[in-house]
Design a protein around this nucleic acid. Structure first.
Length: 865
RNA sequence: GCCCGGGUGGCGAAAUUGGUAGACGCAUCGGACUUAAAAUCCGAAGCCGCAAGGCGUGCCGGUUCGAUUCCGGCCCCGGGCACCA
């Protein structure tokens, strides 16, 4: 056995051992409970980043822990391989996205392997391969047949110079990222998936997911946004025809306070009103400029313009003018809203800006109403009753909504309606590097689905995008085809699918990645649902909601039996690092990588400044942020692995912060992890030099205390593992090491060696999921067994934990003033007497009458005077 | 703007149901070993104070014998907002 810890050699050997044994090959079998540990698969961006290392280390800890607990474990890995960055790289380097992607996968796979993850690589998949994405196409066609997929227009960001659709990410301050041209909203046709048909189930089923974080469920529930309201119409006449302008409101009780109606710029009424009204047409065009992002729409200045068209109030018959408002969303509800300035904050400010009438119709008891300034309580539907509302006066919210909905219904002008904020999922992308949508456009037959026998529609892998439009449009070998119905020349659809489609079902495919004749098979029913899903909090809504929807759609097509794909969810926090920069008086900010910056500290360790190592001159701190290229604050895991090895990187990641919290990078703390593992190795080496000894029936007090410490820490560590608080599990292994080093120094007799050997076997097993290589080697070197993977998980020995005395804290008026040791079975009277007898306590009681004594069993005594 | 999190020593953090605030570690300081340095080992330490003691979990207030934990209000930071993944 080597005296010195050499991670590079140990890690290479351990990984070779696992490879030779095919140790992580998962086989469906009935004799053990199964455990499917799933991590969000990476986008092959080039090399692993710290977020990946963190994500997959968490998954690996859970995988290895459950394996030792006796589960049949599957941990697969794959590649979310389609996407925009490959096209950007292609534009920058002239390399086809396919080559760039496959090269990245090869490099990142090697990195993952060197981290020693217990992955079953035989199930690896990449979404850009035809044997994967053919099933995207196949299922899309099934959805089309079922009416879940359908075609309509969608609003996109349009770059007028490049003549191309831009992703939100490519829109910067309302301008195209490459051209700088002002982006326009443009309507184009596209395919949608009817996720709204599942809105209610997606909402209700959140209650069946106790293993999901409450915050994620809250975000999803808000996203689905179920609201109860009234859909009703304002009748009007235009061009001699009777029409109705429909709106939706959750505040029908305020209908008597309507003073105008606002429609979206894209609303047909706005289009009609703009005919012969150049000013309005100009305003509508202005509304259509800018990005389609909700955050932009919500923060922009609220603007409007009257249309000159008047509609009739459905209950009073009063004339109400229609305005075009840039804040009204065509995609939500009816694309038109009733405006009640007195009881809606946005309407209030809009009305004041344009001098529109504000009519109070809700009376909040004890609150006066003024049209001068908005107050939060004006919109409170819980506290008020109707006023200035004729027959509805005095009714509360619920009663007023009932009465008004009934009156509207009687006139045939409205009814109660449940509305969801959730919109159908637009899956068409005008981009090359994605899964082709299997549709053929025929002049005679229209949009014709590609027959199943012709799947997959294979994406050519040799295109190099140049930023202007979709390169597939310039590929006649792809576009030109025969209509499957009539055989005449036809054009193939060149839109590809949103990459969220690819990631919506990959977790199913891992169960049967080798099946070339079906999307899924019965093995899916063995492994799914995933017992644990791990990924970044940034996926809390879109990816997780789409996956849940896709799973339910597949269930309804009879392909899977499960209702929900992910039983337990762990959302890991992001990895952050400090940002350093210099801002010259003139010119651009330069960012410096934290690795090139030295911190200066005073003699108490307090930080006083930061200087660039290269020139010794100060740099400014820009706070903490996610690791990014633009802020130059990334840390490359490869460098970490090369200088320290996988175990140290893994231990650092687990120890530094609990999994769900953000993790702030610190080079110094990596050094601490390294020191710890060197000490573990050294303890193993020293123990190996000593004879093996049996545990005696009775131990001397110091050894009994050390053994008690080991088992108490183990008990806590097991509890922490159960709740996925891995940072304190790592702490627990450090506490064990501290105790065992004490034993090692305490003597070299048989009793000490027995405690040492038992303690080390516990320490190695608890540590092994976090740092599998060093523990694998020590386990063998110390002769505990062939393979620590097959060792049983340690459980605390109840007898080792028994103690005859307990320590109680004594407080006077809630402040700690001392502590006492009493027999474990001491009664309350004895404890109280012992507490009052304490000298320190007497000082603070100082003859004052004792009002009350609170005794918390096993913890403390509080004397109130 | 809307939705969801977070804020505890110089730093990362811990505190299982309201019960010893700061476990474990990093950095710092002192000591041992060494020709010296690194490594290693031993020890100190929340802040103020010579001490007695006081003050301390973003800020203000409340409930309680007792609040990091519960309640009300506020400030700051991070994530998501549907074409980044």
């Amino acid at each position: 056995m080597q005296q010195k810890y050499n991670p590079q050699v140990i890690e290479r050997d351990a990984q070779q051992f696992w490879d030779d044994a095919q140790a992580f090959r998962a086989v469906e079998s009935g004799d053990k409970p199964k455990y499917y540990c799933l991590s969000m698969f990476p986008y092959p961006s080039g090399k692993l980043h710290m977020g990946h290392v963190r994500n997959y280390t968490i998954g690996d800890v859970l995988t290895r822990y459950h394996r030792m607990k006796g589960y049949n474990v599957l941990q697969p890995m794959g590649w979310d391989a389609f996407g925009l960055p490959a096209e950007n790289a292609a534009m920058a380097n002239g390399v086809p996205p396919a080559k760039w992607t496959y090269d990245n996968i090869a490099y990142m796979r090697k990195q993952l392997k060197s981290l020693g993850f217990a992955i079953d690589w035989s199930r690896e998949l990449a979404t850009c391969k035809p044997d994967y994405y053919r099933w995207n196409q196949w299922l899309f066609l099934r959805m089309l047949e079922k009416g879940i997929a359908y075609k309509r227009t969608q609003v996109v960001n349009w770059d007028p110079i490049d003549q191309t659709v831009l992703a939100n990410e490519q829109v910067i301050d309302g301008k195209g990222w490459r051209t700088g041209a002002t982006v326009e909203k443009r309507e184009i046709p596209g395919y949608y998936l009817a996720i709204t048909k599942y809105a209610d189930e997606l909402l209700e089923a959140l209650d069946t997911l106790p293993g999901w974080p409450e915050r994620v469920k809250a975000m999803q529930a808000n996203w689905i946004g179920k609201s109860y309201g009234v859909r009703f119409a304002f009748p009007y006449t235009i061009d001699g025809k009777a029409e109705k302008l429909w709106v939706f409101t959750t505040r029908a009780d305020t209908i008597m306070g309507v003073t105008f109606v606002a429609v979206a710029a894209e609303h047909p009424l706005a289009t009609r009103a703009a005919q012969g009204n150049a000013k309005l047409a100009g305003f509508i065009a202005e509304c259509k400029r800018g990005s389609v992002m909700e955050a932009d729409l919500a923060t922009m200045e609220k603007k409007g313009m009257p249309t000159g068209i008047f509609v009739e109030h459905p209950l009073t018959g009063e004339k109400v003018e229609v305005w075009v408002g840039n804040y009204v969303l065509m995609g939500y509800g009816e694309g038109a809203v009733m405006a009640v300035p007195a009881h809606d904050e946005r309407d209030f400010h809009f009305a004041r800006q344009y001098g529109l009438r504000i009519t109070q119709v809700i009376d909040i008891p004890g609150q006066s109403f003024s049209t001068d300034a908005w107050q939060e309580c004006y919109a409170d539907k819980e506290k008020g009753v109707c006023t200035h509302s004729g027959k509805y006066d005095g009714l509360n919210y619920a009663a007023a909504v009932d009465a008004i909905a009934a009156d509207l219904a009687a006139k045939g002008l409205g009814e109660k309606q449940v509305l969801y904020r959730l919109r159908d999922w637009g899956v068409s992308r005008q981009r090359y590097w994605g899964c082709p949508i299997p549709i053929i456009h025929c002049a005679d037959c229209g949009d014709v689905p590609v027959p199943d026998k012709d799947l997959p529609v294979v994406l050519p892998e040799d295109c190099v995008p140049d930023g202007s439009g979709n390169p597939l449009n310039k590929r006649p070998d792809f576009v030109d085809c025969a209509c499957p119905k009539c055989g005449k020349p036809a054009k193939r659809e060149t839109d590809t699918m949103d990459t969220f489609v690819d990631s919506s079902w990959y977790y199913l495919r891992y169960a049967c990645a080798d099946n070339s004749t079906a999307m899924v098979d019965s093995r899916v029913n063995y492994w799914l649902p995933a017992d644990q899903y791990i990924g970044g909090i940034e996926h809390a809504i879109l990816h997780l909601l789409y996956s849940r929807f896709w799973n339910k759609a597949m269930r309804d097509l009879g392909l899977v039996k499960i209702d929900e794909p992910f039983k337990n969810l762990l959302t890991q926090g992001m990895v952050l690092n400090e940002i350093f920069f210099r801002k010259p008086a003139a010119g651009r900010i330069t960012y410096y990588n934290p690795a090139d910056v030295d911190l200066t500290v005073d003699d108490k360790g307090n930080r006083v400044g930061a200087v660039l190592r290269a020139d010794g001159q100060p740099v400014e701190s820009g706070g903490i942020g996610t690791m990014s290229k633009s802020k130059n604050n990334g840390v490359d895991p490869q460098a970490l692995m090369e200088s320290y090895g996988a175990d140290i990187a893994r231990f650092y990641m687990m120890f530094t912060a609990p999994p769900e919290q953000t993790l702030e990078w610190s080079d110094a703390s990596v050094e601490g992890a390294s020191r710890f593992l060197r000490r573990v190795w050294s303890l193993g080496y020293e123990t190996a030099q000593r004879p093996v000894a049996d545990m005696p029936a009775a131990l001397p007090a110091p050894l009994a205390a050390a053994r008690r410490e080991i088992h108490a820490v183990l008990k806590q560590g097991n509890y922490d593992l159960g709740r996925h608080q891995f940072n304190t599990v790592a702490s627990a292994t450090m506490k064990m090491l501290n105790a065992l080093e004490g034993v090692l120094k305490g003597g070299n007799d048989a009793a000490a060696n027995a405690v040492l050997r038992e303690g080390l076997s516990i320490l190695l097993r608890v540590l092994s999921p976090i740092t599998p290589h060093i523990t694998h080697q020590l386990w063998r070197d110390l002769g505990y067994g062939e393979d620590i993977l097959n060792a049983p998980w340690p459980e605390p020995d109840a007898q080792a934990l028994v103690e005859s005395e307990m320590e109680l804290v004594i407080q006077v008026n809630g402040k700690k003033r001392g502590d006492i040791r009493v027999p474990r079975d001491a009664n309350k009277a004895a404890i109280e007497a012992a507490a009052l007898a304490d000298a320190e306590v007497q000082k603070f009681v100082a003859g004052q009458p004792v009002k009350k004594v609170v005794i918390v069993p096993g913890r403390l005594v509080n004397i109130v005077v």
